[in-house]
Design a protein around this nucleic acid. Sequence first.
DNA 1: GAGCACTGC
Length: 848
Amino acid sequence: MSPRELPIYELEGAVIETVRGCGRLIVQAPTGSGKSTQIPQMLWRHGVLGEKGEVVVLQPRRLAARLLAKRVAEEAGTNLGEGVGYQIRLESRISERTRIRFVTEGILLRQMSFDPGLPGVSAIVFDEFHERHLYGDISLARALQLQQSTRPDLKIIVMSATLDAGALKNYLAPCEVLTSQGRSFPVAIEYWSKPVNFEHEPVWEVAAEACERVAESTTGDMLVFMPGGYEIARTVQAIQGARGLRGFVCFPLHGELPPEQQDRAVARYEARKIIVSTNVAETSLTIDGVTAVIDSGLARIARFDPHRGINTLLVEKISAASADQRAGRAGRTAPGIAVRLWTEREHGQRALQELPEVKRLDLAEVVLTLKASGVDDVANFPWLEKPEAKGLDRAEELLADLGALAGERRAISELGRKMLRFPMHPRYARMFLAAQERGCVRPVALMAALTQGRNFLLRGVGKDVERAREDLLGEEHESDFFLLMRAWRFAEKNNFSLDACRRLGIHAQAARQVGPLFEQFLQIAGDEGLDIAEGRIDGVEVRKCVLAGFSDQLAKRLDGGTLRCELVHQRRGVLARESAVQKAPLLVAAEINEVGGRGGEVNVLLALATAVEEAWLKEIFPDDFKDTRGVSYDESIRRVVSRRERRFRDLVLETKVSSDEAPLDAAAALLTKEVLAGRLKLEAWDEAVEQWITRVNRLAEWFPELEVNPVTPADRATLIEQVCYGELGYRDIKDKPVMPVLRDWLTAEQLAVIDLYLPERLTMANGRRSKITYHDEGSPVLSARIQELYGIEGKFTVGNGRVPVKIEVLAPNQRPIQVTDDLTAFWRDMYPKVKAELSRRYPRHEWR
DNA sequence: GAGCACTGC
């Protein structure tokens, strides 16, 4: 088909006329109308661009920018990079003669920051504007400002498939709206007849049922939308178990999947295919041959909570517009059908559009660019949609904290201007500047590069991969950044070979993109006069840089037995279990994410952690401590806290208490003695950790005479805890260079725990929710003891016993004896007994 | 036995 036959050509005359006339235009046209390829060419052909001017076409994705440029270059009969070119991060195919330039959103925003007048640009086309990305919104606002001030000749065209044109039209007024038809096939929408509660009826089962139903009435492939990897895996399982879907092949598809598996999902097959996918298939990836879409109506949606200063990623209901976009995927090659797993009535209650990013994400970076362009009062910037006041506040607060803003008006500082040169979140830009002072620009550049794109160190890998990582990358306790660095170096050394990468669970494609970014950052750092020479890397200095960028994400471990942490500003979180920093009492988390669990509970996860030391705070933020010389520690902290209410409150004071006086160690040891003597049930430890700490603190206070130093207090308490919680098995101890006395002591303690623990747990296990877990390596001590006590032969392991505690046993006849239960319920029953026992033993205290 | 969508400078 000739491009001239595309529906958009019906609008050619009107487009040119409007653009010439008022200079602002909204084009509303669905996929397949040809707007992205043809409108830029129309502008060029009709001389709208003037003698030498160019049209910049904004694209939300790199791939789209590249592909569109290629196609338009062909159509226009020029070489790519000559008349038509593209520019994305780290890749530029343009020349002096380029008249149509496809760019991604960040490129234009940066060009606006450093060359605000946009010389040579005659027109800007905002494509796929309905996606409402942060940079798109800001760029449009700035383009309008520019047109109203020094560049009245600048043409602005906003294009979108679905759009609330009313609000946009007012924003752009005076402007015209032109509407065109698309070239896709009709898609019949079917709603579920009755409401489904996914808590009772899992979404994957309903989806599989829908697939079976649709399989008979259609002939093409099917695409199922699910919110994430877990739901996708369950859906694939359900589909593979469904009778009516035996002839189908079924593939998962999501962003973290290795490329070869993604290819497998997209490939063509003889058999009919079902793809179960996340939102990647909604916009970023098109799949041919799909004639039926099954839509769960759910997605994991990222937000930034400006009140707590943390990111959230929770499952939510998608908007009507998003559902339409998903449905449209069934009509690309033939008429199709879309089944929605919700009722028509429920549909009417859904949001029309997704909330734009500007109302949803961390604004620190864009606020910095606005400040740089002289917008001191960001609240009164002409936003298309104004972000929450708290979001702007939070952004300014962080920037001020990082030193990028200064004075009462919070105008950009010299430091802020320097930070702006670095194309990344201001936190990382700040780390570069700290790195210059500490002689570690290179490693910081690598760290920034490592965290820019997709996470390349895959999570949830198997035991083998974990072991390979340990073997090949070595032990790491100080920072997850260091582990990432080593993993990347490994991949680089192996030329990003798929085999080598797979062995360590490295996403080769994602890792490959780090190198060029690293080079770019070094280049920029060099241009800014930073010292980028290679040298010996001092880990301490690097970690101090992390603290400089993330001081407000300082966290303290609440105890040694769990991963729970307390953060600055009265926040709580749980350290990621895959973190390398499992021992440090004080750490900085570069990523904080609230995510939903399978049971519907929500966790704040602290990831990308770096161990830090309290003494560094004073060194890195000397201003906060400057008039505290010669006063006591507590007094100096008090002064700092009153000056900087937010930053170090509570946290530092508490760290001091626990490191200097160690009441927890003493109390943990005391409680352990109670457990071992049979007076206190181990489970009593397992309720909320806060309560536990309160209790043990009180115990320590009451029994100062207690002696707890046979090895070292910290080691001892931690070890007791770990053994009792089952985090440490015999295997963990036997290879460690601990003193023989410690080894004996631990073995004895383990035995005691089993004696106390196992009989009761076994009887409780019957009929409770239980799962079978296979452990290839058991503890010989446990095995021997269990055999002696119960006559069961096999490999036994005290399972990973964060709350709740459990013991897993696999007998040689493959019959599992698995113990897991809800200790909260158990504790409710147990606590009065413990209390009675403690009251009997320690009558002088009142137990609560 | 868990805890994570997608882009982009």
